[in-house]
């Protein structure tokens, strides 16, 4: 009886499931929708769900008034920079942990992951002192380093689990055939590791892009990314709902696109590899 799936039940299940799904998605849909309204329509009562004069005005106003592109550029630089440096630092470490394991390997991994047990606020104080000392406040390079470091445990951990899945036999076979270490890494390991590295980079890019805590506390006008921009906008509430929606939509658009295609890898990273 359980196996007999009638068309009607199928449609019913799909309808119920999609109603729940759309309810969950609604806040995001609403933010995006509001960005295409005029300010008056945005706070119209009753709310306008679809039939209103769609406008792109908010997008141009946001850019004109607050130099949106600069924040966007900062976001790209911070997320991209911290991701590239993080992977450059993380790959060798994960490589040696996965392929030349020792008794200490697990300890080193746990040592790095241990900080995830404590709130980031605990490190903010010493790091901000460090920033003041070296004049790094509100600079991109300082923030790139911080973003790289806070995500480094996840990078190393993810790369480690991906590298672990590469069969060592293949590497040994390459060695038997006389491949040098350089050749082994370049021509044997890299092609097999690329998918893992790519999804690690993707996750790290999204995490760095979203990071609000550090960027809010360590930047002002110069190096602030989109998250700082949106946070600074939200105080004069109500007056700029449509414009803030436009800014938010532009901030989430790249994340939506990247995240849409990489959920599985994201879950793997966010759960520390509990889901493969």
């Amino acid at each position: 009886m359980a196996r007999a799936v009638t068309t009607r039940r199928k449609i019913l299940t799909t309808a119920v499931a999609w109603t729940i799904g759309l309810l969950i998605f609604f806040p995001i849909y609403w933010t995006i929708l509001t960005s295409f309204k005029s300010e008056a329509q945005a706070i119209n009562d009753p709310p306008l769900f679809f039939f209103f004069d769609w406008t792109l005005e908010n997008y141009s106003v946001v850019q004109d008034r607050s130099d949106y592109m600069r924040f966007l550029w900062n976001s790209v630089i911070l997320a991209g920079g911290s991701t590239i440096i993080g992977v450059l630092v993380g790959v060798p470490a994960a490589w040696s942990m996965a392929f030349v394991p020792s008794k200490r390997t697990k300890d080193i991994l746990l040592w790095m992951l241990s900080t995830k047990m404590l709130p980031a606020v605990g490190v903010l104080y010493p790091i901000s002192l460090l920033f003041v000392q070296f004049g790094l406040l509100d600079t991109r390079i300082g923030l790139i380093m911080v973003l790289m470091l806070i995500n480094l445990p996840i990078i190393v951990w993810m790369l480690y689990t991906y590298f672990k899945e590469i069969p060592v036999d293949i590497l040994e076979a390459a060695r038997m055939d006389g491949a040098s270490l350089r050749q082994e890494i370049l021509f044997v390991l890299t092609p097999m590791a690329v998918p893992g590295i790519a999804s690690t980079m993707l996750l790290n890019f999204i995490l760095a892009w979203n990071e609000a805590f550090w960027t809010l506390n360590l930047t002002a006008a110069n190096a602030g990314p989109l998250t700082a921009f949106i946070a600074s906008y939200s105080s004069p509430e109500g007056l700029f709902f449509a414009k803030l929606s436009a800014a938010s939509t532009m901030a989430i658009a790249p994340i939506l696109i990247l995240g849409w295609f990489s959920q599985k890898q994201l879950v793997r990273g966010l759960t520390f590899g509990a889901v493969k």
């Binding site: 799904g21 998605f25 509001t34 994340i255 995240g259």
Partner: peptide
């Protein structure tokens, strides 16, 4: 359903205020 997970807190806070 997975989309909200990958959004920044700042945006989540704003979307819900809307």
């Amino acid at each position: 359903i997975f989309v909200p997970t990958i959004l920044s807190f700042v945006i989540v806070g704003f979307a819900w205020k809307l």
